[in-house]
Computed example of a mutant assay.
Amino acid sequence: MNVRHDGDRDHESQVDPMSLVAMLLGGLAAWGGLGWLVDWALGYQGLFLPIGLVLGAVGSVYLIYVRYVRS
C-alpha cells in the first residue's frame, strides 16, 4: 500500500499534548523561579513571584500560539 505523505503538512497537523503541557509548565517554572529568586535576593515577600508566574503563563501561551496556531 502506497501512502503519500505531504511532508510538513502531516507533521504540523499532529500536535503532541504533552509538549503543550511541558511548554506551559516550563514557562511557569522558569519565570516563577526567576521571580522567586528576585524576591529572595531583594528581601521582598511575594512581590515578584506572581509577576514571574503571570509572565511565564502569558509567554508560554504566546509561544504555543506562534508554534501551533499561526504556522
Rank of each mutant, 00 (worst) to 15 (best):
M1F: 14
M1S: 12
M1N: 09
M1L: 10
M1V: 06
M1H: 11
N2C: 11
N2K: 09
N2T: 06
N2R: 02
V3E: 12
V3I: 03
R4N: 07
R4E: 09
R4V: 02
H5P: 06
H5W: 12
D6M: 06
D8H: 13
D8C: 14
D8P: 15
R9Y: 08
R9G: 07
H11S: 12
H11I: 13
S13D: 15
S13G: 13
S13H: 15
S13C: 11
Q14E: 15
Q14N: 12
V15A: 08
V15E: 11
M18K: 11
M18I: 15
M18A: 10
S19G: 11
V21Y: 00
A22D: 02
M23A: 10
L25P: 08
L25K: 01
L25I: 08
L25C: 07
G26P: 01
G27Q: 08
G27W: 12
L28Y: 13
L28R: 03
L28G: 04
L28K: 10
A29P: 11
A30T: 12
W31P: 01
W31D: 09
W31R: 04
G32D: 07
G33D: 02
L34P: 02
G35F: 01
G35E: 02
L37N: 01
L37Q: 04
V38Q: 00
W40Y: 10
A41Q: 12
Y44T: 15
Y44F: 14
G46T: 10
G46A: 09
G46V: 06
G46R: 05
G46Q: 05
G46K: 05
L47M: 15
F48K: 03
L49C: 09
L49H: 06
P50E: 14
I51D: 11
V54T: 10
L55N: 08
L55A: 10
L55V: 07
G56H: 00
G56S: 02
G56F: 07
V58T: 03
S60V: 02
S60Y: 05
V61I: 12
V61M: 03
V61C: 07
V61N: 10
V66Q: 04
V66R: 08
V66F: 08
R67Q: 04
Y68D: 04
Y68S: 02
V69T: 01
V69R: 01
R70K: 00
S71Y: 09
